[in-house]
Write a protein that binds this DNA or RNA. Sequence first.
DNA 1: TTTTTGACTTTTTTAGTTTGTAAGTCAAAT
DNA 2: ATTTGACTTACAAACTAAAAAAGTCAAAAA
Lengths: 202, 202
Amino acid sequence: MHAETKDEMRDKILEAALKRFTHYSASKTTMNEIADDLHCSKASLYYYFPDKKGLHFAVLEKIGEIFISEQEAEGENIISAEQTLLNILEVKRQFLERYCRLELFKILNDNSEGTQRMIKEVKNREDALLARIIEYGVKIGEFAVDNPKQLAELYNQAMFGLRFAAVDCFQINTDIEAEHLEMILAQQKLLTEIFVKGLKYR
Amino acid sequence: MHAETKDEMRDKILEAALKRFTHYSASKTTMNEIADDLHCSKASLYYYFPDKKGLHFAVLEKIGEIFISEQEAEGENIISAEQTLLNILEVKRQFLERYCRLELFKILNDNSEGTQRMIKEVKNREDALLARIIEYGVKIGEFAVDNPKQLAELYNQAMFGLRFAAVDCFQINTDIEAEHLEMILAQQKLLTEIFVKGLKYR
DNA sequence: TTTTTGACTTTTTTAGTTTGTAAGTCAAAT
DNA sequence: ATTTGACTTACAAACTAAAAAAGTCAAAAA
């Protein structure tokens, strides 16, 4: 295995890791397996990443960026704020369908410095996007509220919380199970409708 | 230790167990400690309960009943549906403050037959109560919706989900931490306000 | 000079074992 | 009918050994 540039090789490794992770989950993937997939030696991986955790983190960064940028794309040209919120739900569902199997959080669940910052940053960008959407709604007269930022955060938390709605008992798991996805999405859509109506009147 | 009737003794045991659990958590409490507190032998406990799990389950039943009946009391004479929903949040907060330390779910978290049924029953009674409140709101013209049961379930799930709102990373825990309680309650109140507004208009 | 690698050491995980503590039983006593 | 002391059994934490995976590095290759 050889690539033109250093960055290119780094990307190839990330891609191979992500492929393994989505097939077999991150915790069941060894550095040797990734190296074998790339027909290179394990030592090479350590030339590009300081350690296994560093690789995990880089993968998290990669999919975090995909996750948030796909949502931000939906916010590029808003027609109706309500419709945009529903579109974002759909985008997030597709994302989850693609990546729910990698179970990165099983590993990065430690309250490690970097991971928390990463997650917080994604959350902040989501909050900011949602705030922009609500502010847009206010501007065009779709909504009548005076605290869009606060409401954006609340909405985001409420959508997140509904992940645990479908769970029968308290089998709580950070990584979502594909089976419940549809039911959760339905509840998220319904709550979005009510929430949006709640924003329309003072 | 001796009681007048069998039921009385059973209650005394439950009380002693609950006291231990709320002080030191269920998982750190031994049958011997409970027996010592009651100045009786451990063997006596096994005369009233089939095993440790049976005792745990009986305690869960007891506090489950407290949890739900306190909420149902709030629904007895509703003046405003919105105010009743806010009152229920307050009742739940007080309940959590009292019992958050017992950590029963740490133990009963297994997807055991009985526990799941118990939790489901409490959830159903909550859903039913909330549905009655929303239906009342519809009746007096406070709300304008045609699916109160569905909305009750959604509202219940959304409130439950907000428990996980305050958590920084994904430090998810079935038993709630006292510190976050106030922040969660604030978000629950805010969402209730928006939700209620969302129910007012078609 | 940058990148790769095989051979190496170190660390972590796993499976198996021991052991102390708590769960659970029971015949006898109240 | 209820309680109990003395007992056995079961489980969870603490070790241990072996295996597997992580991580290093000097030498080779590009």
